[in-house]
Amino acid sequence: MTINEIEKEIVEEFEIFGDDWEGKYEHLIDLGKSLPLIKEEFKTEDRIIKGCQSRVWLNSELKEGNVVYTADADAIITKGMVALMVRVLSNHKAEEIVKADLKFVDTIGLKEHLSPTRANGLVSMINMMKTDALKFIS
C-alpha cells in the first residue's frame, strides 16, 4: 500500500467515531497499548527525541531499499500517535516519506498533536523521521 492508501485506511478506521472524541482517544490509547514498537536495546539516550514532555525513541534503518522505523514513547497517547506515524511512513521509499504531508492527522481530528508547543513530542518525531529518510537519499 502507498502512504496515501494507508492514510485513507486510518481515516476510515476513525470515521466510525464521528464526533465522539472519547471513543477516538480510547482507540488511540488501545493502539498505544497494543504495539511494542521498539526493541529495548534501541531505547538509548541518543535515540530519545529531547525537549518534549513525553519521551519518544526513534530508530530508522534501510531495509531492501525501504526505510523501516521502529519507535516508542512513554506516554500512551503519544505512543498511539507514534504507532499511527510508523504505520503510515514505515516500509516506504525515502523519497515518498520526505514528501508525505500527513494530512490524515487533521482529517481524523487529532490536529492538536501537531501544534508547535514544546509539550508535544510528535512534531519533533515527524521531523526526525523525515530527516533520517533524507540521510538515506543522500
Binding site: 482517544y25 514532555q53 513525553s54 512513554d74 506516554a75 500512551i76 497517547i77 503519544t78 509539550a119
Partner: peptide, 8 residues
C-alpha cells in the same frame, strides 16, 4: 504519564 492525564 502526566502528559496523558493533561491531554485528556
Amino acid at each position: 504519564h502526566p502528559f496523558d492525564v493533561g491531554t485528556l
